[in-house]
């Protein structure tokens, strides 16, 4: 993300590009990283619905992994994940380990 100089800021600070916040990668905030274990996934998509950062990638109605550029590592997905036969499909792991 590049900051604009004052000459380039639009009058009234109007944002003309929708969704430009995508330029700001919030993934660097993360202390814990969610790991997806595909064999335990029942594709309930709760992780996708409950993610506050829209960082769960879904393709054709199926969970396909995380977008680590934006995931802040809150862990809601891992806590809400029902998993399969008592085994979670999302686990939180400490970053850098």
């Amino acid at each position: 993300m590049k900051l604009k100089g004052w000459k380039k800021v639009t009058p009234g600070a109007v944002c003309t590009v929708a969704g430009s916040a995508l330029e700001f990668k919030t993934g660097s905030w993360r202390a814990f990283r969610p790991r997806w274990i595909e064999e335990n996934c029942i594709q309930c998509l709760f992780c996708w619905m409950y993610c506050p950062d829209m960082a769960v990638n879904v393709k054709d109605g199926k969970m396909v992994g995380f977008n680590y550029d934006y995931c802040k590592g809150c862990g809601i997905c891992a806590l809400e994940c029902p998993g399969k036969k008592g085994k979670k499909a999302i686990v939180m792991e400490e970053e850098g380990k």
Partner: peptide
Amino acid sequence: GLLTSGHRMCAGCGAPI
């Protein structure tokens, strides 16, 4: 999705959900 990633709400905030 009409609210994108890259917003600066705290990790685990309820409001963006």
